[in-house]
């Protein structure tokens, strides 16, 4: 009976997790139906109360803006710019921070000294860097990529440090007594052991990076989704703003749920490593 209950409970939460992730048609439907309902409420409310387009656009107007911006290529241009910046900034940051984090964690002294430091900077990550980034790099690609790099870099390094520190000592002893040298220790124990934390760090960091991106694009560039929104504001084009918001939300939902969450689940849950609360 205990087994039954537990499996039952597991199945229940598994349902929630699958909703929003890949895994068959039914979860996708369960996820999209409420959003469809929301769309209907929007259509009905705007029509019923005759909300002026300057306050809130109708579904049709937003759809029209979507078609127009797709056909003149501007939506793809802005989206592509945003995604490119996120991609470059994130990949650079991960490429630097994971080796750096592991290297630092090997030395007890280095990790003791640097952990609070990286904690401090991971607190600053993202938006707070915009002013100085624009001063150092000028407006444009460099400044924005720098902001994204920062958002991911400090948090991932900090989490890698934590991850290596959280590997149980007996595990290291076991590997050493089985004859693992320093290199094997690194690739077979330290890296995989830190991986769940690294992945969690990437997920958190990219969350901040994505928001930082939108803010930076509003301030410091002439392309990208954030810029598209802010430009539309100047002309009171609420339908373009709404379109941009929906694209931003949908993109992040896909990045987070289809890319990051499954990876996190694969490492943490498959290995049975329970993440600490917090």
């Amino acid at each position: 009976m205990r087994g039954f209950r537990r499996r039952h409970w597991r199945a229940d939460t598994a349902y929630d997790r699958v909703v929003g992730g890949p895994g068959g048609l039914r979860p996708a439907v369960a996820f999209l139906v409420p959003l469809g309902l929301l769309l209907m409420v929007w259509a009905v409310v705007v029509a019923l109360f005759q909300v002026p387009a300057r306050v809130f656009p109708s579904v049709g107007e937003v759809a029209l803006a979507g078609v127009q911006s797709l056909s003149d290529g501007s939506l793809l241009h802005h989206t592509g710019q945003s995604l490119l910046r996120v991609l470059v900034g994130t990949v650079l940051a991960i490429a630097v921070s994971v080796p750096l984090g592991v290297a630092m964690s090997v030395s007890r002294v280095a990790s003791a000294v640097l952990t609070p430091l990286f904690r401090f900077f991971s607190v600053l990550a993202g938006i707070a860097w915009i002013p100085i980034a624009t001063l150092w790099f000028g407006y444009g690609f460099g400044a924005i990529t720098f902001v994204i790099f920062n958002a991911v870099f400090f948090i991932v390094t900090y989490n890698t440090l934590l991850g290596v520190a959280s590997i149980p000592l007996p595990l290291r002893y076991a590997a050493a007594s089985l004859g693992a040298g320093p290199w094997r220790m690194l690739t077979e124990v330290l890296l995989p052991g830190a991986l769940p934390n690294v992945v969690t760090g990437i997920r958190t960091g990219m969350g901040y990076a994505w928001r930082g991106l939108i803010a930076a694009e509003m301030i410091a560039t002439n392309a990208g989704l954030g810029y598209m929104l802010f430009l539309a504001r100047d002309f009171y084009r609420t339908e373009v703003i709404l379109l941009g918001m929906i694209v931003i939300g949908a993109l992040w939902l896909m990045i987070d749920r289809l890319l990051l969450a499954p990876v996190e689940r694969a490492t943490i849950e498959r290995w049975g490593m329970v993440r600490r609360v917090g």
Binding site: G20, P34, L229, L242, I248, G249
Partner: peptide, 27 residues
């Protein structure tokens, strides 16, 4: 409430605060 609310909550969370700024400025 969970079945209906959860996806909507996730979506609004995903839009993110900053993206609201332009329309809020209009409002």
């Amino acid at each position: 409430a969970h079945r209906l609310g959860w996806p909507v909550l996730l979506f609004f969370q995903a839009i993110g605060d900053i993206a609201w700024l332009p329309i809020l400025l209009i409002w």
